[in-house]
Computed example of a mutant assay.
Amino acid sequence: MSIKINFLNPFGTDAYNSLIHETMSPYLTNGAELVVTNTKNCPENIDYYYSKHLIEEAVFESCIEAEKNGFDAVIVGCCYDPGVRVARELVDIPVIGPLEATMQLAPYYGHDYVLVTDHHKAIPYLRDMVRLYGEEAHCLSVNCIDWWVTEMIQDTAGVARDAVSAAAEIRQQVGAEVAILGCTIISASYEKAVREGVYPRDMGILNPNTAALKVAQALAELQAQGSYGISRKAYYQSLKDRNADEFERVRKRFGNRRPNDM
């Protein structure tokens, strides 16, 4: 059984693709294949919510295309988990949000955790995500390292340095056992530094990219074995199942719409 996973960078640029592939590929097992792609013809900066919503339209279409192209799972590569739940309505393959996956795995590493994200604007958004995922009892704090994604790719070593420092300091301040690096590019920067021998592996620092990869592979393998499927009873019920004609009309009119080239 060979699983094919699409890591979809939602940033509208291929600037981050090689970093993601380099730092995730070592964790592939059982012949699984990782293909890193990015959204097209949409904003490159997901930090602001207007751009984020435009990007989510591209995420939906990319997930549909991934399923058509034979992928067994999609990881939407941002800890905002942009468009993940809507995409699950549209496709039958697993769609993974890195933040959700890491929160689900965190109890295997420690009782409670802190989230270390990129910048001040992300803090309230991730606090909302903590509530959405029902993790208030385990997430003790959400803090940032004051980096923006467009700057991170220019200095991954600096990002790793600040992430390691912040994870240690904030865990000590609030008494948390582990830290989640609440940004896929922070996580990739940290992983790169660890693999280069700059820092020893800290088992208390959780990498959402790795967590998402393992959840994606596990669910894809279960689906291939006939032991996983998305319930269409309510929350993830698809319009195409309820009214196929309406779904096709919506898709024809809006589905292939893209924001103007930026």
Score class of each variant (00 low, 15 high):
residue 3 I to D: 10
residue 4 K to E: 02
residue 4 K to P: 04
residue 6 N to M: 13
residue 7 F to C: 09
residue 8 L to K: 11
residue 15 A to E: 08
residue 17 N to R: 11
residue 17 N to A: 08
residue 19 L to D: 06
residue 21 H to S: 14
residue 21 H to K: 09
residue 22 E to P: 04
residue 23 T to I: 07
residue 25 S to E: 14
residue 28 L to P: 13
residue 31 G to L: 10
residue 33 E to S: 05
residue 33 E to R: 11
residue 39 T to A: 08
residue 41 N to H: 15
residue 44 E to Y: 12
residue 46 I to T: 11
residue 53 H to S: 15
residue 56 E to D: 14
residue 59 V to W: 12
residue 63 C to M: 04
residue 64 I to P: 00
residue 64 I to F: 10
residue 65 E to Y: 09
residue 70 G to Q: 02
residue 70 G to N: 00
residue 71 F to I: 12
residue 73 A to I: 04
residue 75 I to Q: 05
residue 78 C to F: 01
residue 81 D to F: 10
residue 82 P to C: 09
residue 83 G to F: 08
residue 84 V to M: 12
residue 86 V to Q: 08
residue 88 R to A: 00
residue 94 P to C: 04
residue 95 V to E: 03
residue 96 I to H: 14
residue 96 I to K: 06
residue 97 G to P: 07
residue 97 G to Y: 07
residue 100 E to K: 07
residue 100 E to I: 02
residue 100 E to T: 08
residue 100 E to L: 09
residue 105 L to F: 07
residue 108 Y to S: 14
residue 110 G to T: 05
residue 111 H to W: 02
residue 117 T to E: 05
residue 118 D to V: 15
residue 119 H to E: 14
residue 119 H to V: 14
residue 123 I to Y: 01
residue 124 P to Q: 13
residue 125 Y to N: 04
residue 131 R to Q: 09
residue 133 Y to A: 01
residue 133 Y to P: 01
residue 135 E to W: 03
residue 135 E to Y: 05
residue 137 A to Q: 07
residue 143 N to A: 07
residue 145 I to C: 01
residue 145 I to A: 05
residue 147 W to Q: 09
residue 149 V to P: 02
residue 149 V to Q: 01
residue 149 V to I: 08
residue 150 T to H: 05
residue 152 M to A: 01
residue 153 I to W: 04
residue 153 I to H: 05
residue 162 D to E: 12
residue 164 V to D: 00
residue 167 A to P: 04
residue 169 E to N: 08
residue 173 Q to Y: 00
residue 174 V to W: 00
residue 178 V to Y: 07
residue 184 T to R: 09
residue 185 I to V: 13
residue 186 I to Q: 10
residue 189 S to I: 06
residue 190 Y to E: 05
residue 194 V to H: 10
residue 194 V to I: 15
residue 197 G to H: 10
residue 197 G to Y: 12
residue 202 D to C: 01
residue 202 D to N: 04
residue 203 M to R: 03
residue 203 M to F: 06
residue 204 G to Y: 11
residue 204 G to T: 09
residue 205 I to M: 11
residue 206 L to C: 10
residue 206 L to T: 06
residue 206 L to V: 12
residue 208 P to N: 09
residue 211 A to T: 06
residue 211 A to V: 13
residue 213 L to A: 15
residue 214 K to M: 14
residue 216 A to K: 09
residue 221 E to I: 14
residue 226 G to K: 10
residue 228 Y to F: 13
residue 228 Y to P: 15
residue 234 A to V: 13
residue 238 S to P: 10
residue 239 L to S: 02
residue 242 R to D: 03
residue 243 N to H: 12
residue 248 E to K: 02
residue 249 R to D: 11
residue 250 V to S: 00
residue 250 V to T: 00
residue 251 R to E: 14
residue 251 R to V: 04
residue 252 K to D: 06
residue 252 K to V: 01
residue 253 R to P: 03
residue 255 G to M: 04
residue 255 G to D: 02
residue 256 N to P: 00
residue 259 P to D: 12
residue 260 N to E: 15
residue 261 D to K: 15
residue 262 M to W: 14
